[in-house]
Design a protein around this nucleic acid. Structure first.
Lengths: 110, 110
DNA sequence: GGCAGGTACTGTGTAACACAACATACCGGA
DNA sequence: TCCGGTATGTTGTGTTACACAGTACCTGCC
């Protein structure tokens, strides 16, 4: 195991949180936009990872989507958070900050 | 997927970092002590998770251990970081703070 | 018609952890 | 001496989620 692997491992756990956050901030967006945003935040993800995740979140009732015509290709699925999704994102955000605290605690524990 | 599942998922990625941090701070410790520390930091892990991980880290040359007699049971394996382990922990710590920044960025991105 | 680019989807593999059962060593009391 | 309980360490199986690479389809343009 090298450091790249460990970084990928840490990233895994927060994908859900990041994707929901990005959708929440954008009001509405489609997969390629999400990918761009994540890339901007230095969280590299590929399409094959993102699409199944979006589908799963939709099936769980956290996201809904809408087909929108595009001028430069096939129509796009614009996602937005459902009410459940908003609640879940709140819980997730709280869990995240608790985790950050827990990790920092374990790093200082004597 | 419920919130507990997501929390578990986030926790997975940081186990390595936490365990190495705890061992680094304690100079030397054995599995049960690590479990106690993690519990104190609200990072619940069970033995069946910890032991294989310690073995893996040892095989990768990040940890070394030493048998030490105990007054209240069988001998214990006291782990400590190797020089490689110290370097790896530094990298991991850096990766962690980068991740925290990345997540926070994605949460504020507009 | 065919080519290029953009968008969405799928199938297979891998890695890591959860869980539960098992193995061994030590100690104290009957 | 034997037995039970506790502390420590180990192993095997299952689940889950993501990576990766390939596929499908639509659109516009030459």
């Amino acid at each position: 195991m090298d450091i790249e692997n460990s970084k990928a491992q840490m990233r895994k756990g927060v994908l859900e949180l990041c994707i929901l956050s990005i959708i929440a901030n954008d009001e509405e967006c489609y997969a390629s936009e999400i990918l761009k945003h994540m890339k901007k935040a230095k969280l590299i993800v590929v399409e094959g990872t993102l699409y199944p995740l979006l589908t799963r979140l939709k099936n769980e009732g956290l996201l809904s989507y809408q087909w929108v015509e595009s001028k430069s290709g096939p129509p796009r699925k614009y996602y937005k958070l459902t009410r459940n999704g908003e609640g879940f994102l709140e819980d997730l955000t709280k869990a995240w900050s608790e985790l950050v605290n827990a990790v920092n605690t374990s790093r200082k524990l004597k």
